[in-house]
């Protein structure tokens, strides 16, 4: 159960929100000029990183406002929230604790209880 800090309402329980997938995926300005492949990427392909992830949430059972968040998907820690239209914080700002793309964080992993030696 995440605790999400809605930029409009403050900290609320996760059950008040709905996730909207990857943030900052702009709809092509001229869809007709997109190739089938480019268009299919826009419609179907979204980033799915383990680690730092820019995503959208909507405060469904609250102010109904959409906003963006940066979350570490390997631990679920929410690192930052910001309003739609605000520039995304640079990824360098956040520490990625993963040593490899599919690695595990030092703590917070669901995979082990004892630190691997």
């Amino acid at each position: 159960m995440l605790l999400i800090n809605c930029p409009y309402c403050g900290e609320r329980d996760q059950i008040e929100f709905t996730n909207g997938g990857e943030a900052h995926v702009a709809r092509p300005k001229n869809p007709d000029q997109e190739s089938d492949r480019e268009w299919s990427e826009y419609v179907f392909v979204r980033a799915n990183p383990k680690g730092i992830y820019y995503e959208r949430w909507v405060h469904t059972h609250g102010c109904k406002k959409w906003f963006n968040a940066v979350r570490n998907t390997s631990t679920d820690e929410i690192l930052e929230v910001y309003k739609i239209g605000d520039p995304p914080p640079p990824i360098k700002k956040f520490k990625n604790t993963l040593k490899s793309p599919s690695g595990e964080p030092d703590v917070g992993s669901g995979n082990f209880a004892v630190k691997k030696t």
Binding site: M1, I15, T18, Y53, E55, G108, G110, N111
Partner: peptide, 12 residues
């Protein structure tokens, strides 16, 4: 409803 690699979900 959200992407995660933590193998734990919401209690709801």
């Amino acid at each position: 409803g959200y992407n995660s690699f933590t193998q734990r979900g919401g209690y709801n």
